[in-house]
C-alpha cells in the first residue's frame, strides 16, 4: 500500500504544491493526469524519494520513507521503486543488458544476468541486448527503459510521461507492457501524464487541477 497524506512541497524559489491524498493498494494501477505546470513531475519525484516533501507523510507498505535521507533513502529507492522516464536515459557507455545489470547492482541486489536477459526477451528487445541505447529506436529505448524499471521487481513502479514521445501504436504497446508487468509483480503502478490516450487503460485516474497552494 502506498500512502501519501497531506503531501506538500515548496520550491526554494517560492512555488508551493499541496497534493491530494493517495491510498493505493498493492497491484493497483493509477493514471495521474494534469496539464503542464500542474505539479505532476513534482508529485512523481516526491513519491520516488527524489525530492523530500516539505509537509505530509509518505509510506510504502507501512514503511515511512519521507523521513529517510542520504544513503538510507537511496537504498530504499533502489530496492522498492522502479522509475520510467519520458525520455529514455541510459548509461551511454554500457550495452542495454549492462544497464539492467547496473540497475540491480546500484540497488545492492544480486545481479541476475539470465533473468535480465529473459526480461528483455519478454519485452521483445532481446535481440538488442548487446546494443548500445543510441542504436535502438525510440520505441525500443522505451521498452528497454521499462525493463530497467522492472529489473529489481519493485513494489512501486512510477512512470513519467512514458508515452509522450511515442506514436499511437507504440504508446499502446508501452502502456500494455507497463500494466502487464506491474500486475505480474503485484506492484503499484502510477503513471503521470498529460496523454489522454492512456485514459481508457486505467481503472484509477486522478486529475491534478490547481494543486498550487
Amino acid at each position: 500500500m502506498l500512502r501519501a497524506t497531506d503531501l506538500q512541497y515548496q520550491y526554494p524559489q517560492g512555488e508551493a504544491f499541496r497534493f491530494p491524498d493517495l491510498n493505493c493498494p498493492v497491484a493497483s494501477q493509477w493514471l495521474i493526469l494534469g496539464p503542464s505546470g500542474s505539479g505532476k513531475s513534482t508529485l512523481l519525484h516526491l513519491l520516488a524519494g527524489l525530492l523530500s516533501p516539505t509537509g505530509g507523510e509518505l509510506s510504502l507498505n507501512d514503511e515511512r520513507y519521507d523521513q529517510l535521507s542520504g544513503s538510507g533513502l537511496d537504498a530504499f529507492r533502489g530496492r522498492h521503486i522502479g522509475m520510467i522516464f519520458q525520455r529514455s536515459y541510459f548509461v551511454a557507455s554500457l550495452r542495454v543488458r549492462e544497464n539492467l545489470d547496473l540497475a540491480q547492482q546500484l540497488s545492492k541486489q544480486k545481479v541476475d544476468k539470465p533473468a535480465n536477459r529473459a526480461l528483455l526477451e519478454e519485452l521483445g528487445i532481446g535481440r538488442h541486448a548487446n546494443k548500445y541505447a543510441h542504436q535502438l529506436s525510440i520505441g525500443e529505448q522505451q521498452r528497454a527503459s521499462i525493463a530497467r524499471g522492472l529489473v529489481n521487481r519493485p513494489s512501486l513502479l512510477l512512470a513519467d510521461e512514458p508515452t509522450a514521445a511515442l506514436d499511437a501504436a507504440n504508446a499502446k504497446i508501452v502502456s500494455r507492457l507497463l500494466r502487464e508487468r506491474a500486475a505480474e509483480l503485484n506492484a503499484i503502478l502510477l503513471v503521470v501524464t498529460h496523454d489522454e490516450r492512456l485514459l481508457p487503460d486505467f481503472e484509477h485516474v486522478i486529475r491534478l487541477g490547481d494543486v498550487k497552494s
Binding site: L50, D74, G78, R79, M83, Y89, V91, L106, S107, R148
Partner: peptide, 18 residues
C-alpha cells in the same frame, strides 16, 4: 553531457559518494 545519466544512476540507488 552526462548529467542525465548521473541523475539516472542516483535515481537507481547510487549515492552521491558513488
Amino acid at each position: 553531457e552526462r548529467k542525465k545519466e548521473l541523475a539516472l544512476m542516483r535515481s537507481m540507488g547510487a549515492g552521491p559518494g558513488k
